[in-house]
Design a protein around this nucleic acid. Structure first.
Length: 202
DNA sequence: TAGGTGATCTTG
DNA sequence: AAGATCACCTAT
């Protein structure tokens, strides 16, 4: 747990003006939740960067302020969670200083803690990529919903811990999934994943 | 490959 | 006020 391991990320670890670079640093980190007093966690293996100022794929482009995007404009270190297709809860890490809307979508984790709880929440009896490979799947496995939108990631409900250093050779850059509406920005290589990890979506 | 599902944003 | 859209998943 957090208090024992004592390598929980602090506010400064979430802050940066280059969300594309930051996204890669979160690969290998552990994402933990405590939901209904149940502890679950997984290692982040796939992420995507979104930038409100210059990226058509971002909900907050071009610096658009709506009720939904308000969370992204907060100072880094909070969760941005939204519902898509009427049923899927997607978890993002807000990363810039207040007033700049950047976020990192976590697309896949490798299960580490609370496997039985995750299986139960996902209604599965196998540990394979269907358990936590995919942004909506991992949210469901970790018990994350839009209720948690705005949650402080240095608290004790959702938190991250440092990962081991990853060699650049083990990080793959690719185009983001499901952002065809973004025109040319859909071609940006802002999706990153750990090479050969079986939980990576797609 | 098609259909489900409802919040969000635009008037497409 | 209504309609289009959607950072996806599951079962055919």
């Amino acid at each position: 747990m957090k208090s024992i391991v004592n390598n929980t990320l602090s506010k400064k670890d979430y802050l940066g003006h280059d969300v594309v670079r930051l996204a890669q640093l979160f690969l290998g980190s552990e994402l933990h939740t405590l939901s209904n007093n149940l502890h679950t966690a997984g290692r982040i293996v796939e992420v995507e960067a979104y930038c409100g100022a210059m990226d058509r794929a971002c909900h907050a482009y071009p610096e658009k302020r709506t009720k939904r995007t308000a969370t992204m404009y907060r100072a880094g270190g909070v969760a941005y969670i939204y519902l898509v297709y009427g049923m899927h809860h997607l978890f993002n890490i807000v990363t810039n200083t207040a007033g700049r809307a950047d976020a990192i979508l976590v697309r896949a984790i490798e299960p580490l803690v609370g496997l039985d709880i995750m299986k139960q929440r996902r209604n599965l009896n196998q540990n394979n990529k269907l358990l936590t490979g995919g942004p909506a799947r991992l949210s469901q496995a970790l018990g994350i919903t839009t209720r948690d939108n705005g949650t402080d990631l240095t608290g004790n409900r959702i938190w991250l811990t440092k990962g081991n250093y990853l060699k650049p050779d083990n990080i793959v850059a690719a185009t983001r999934i499901g952002v065809d509406y973004a025109g040319e920005d859909a071609l940006l290589p802002w999706r990153f994943y750990i090479k050969d990890n079986i939980y990576v979506s797609k």
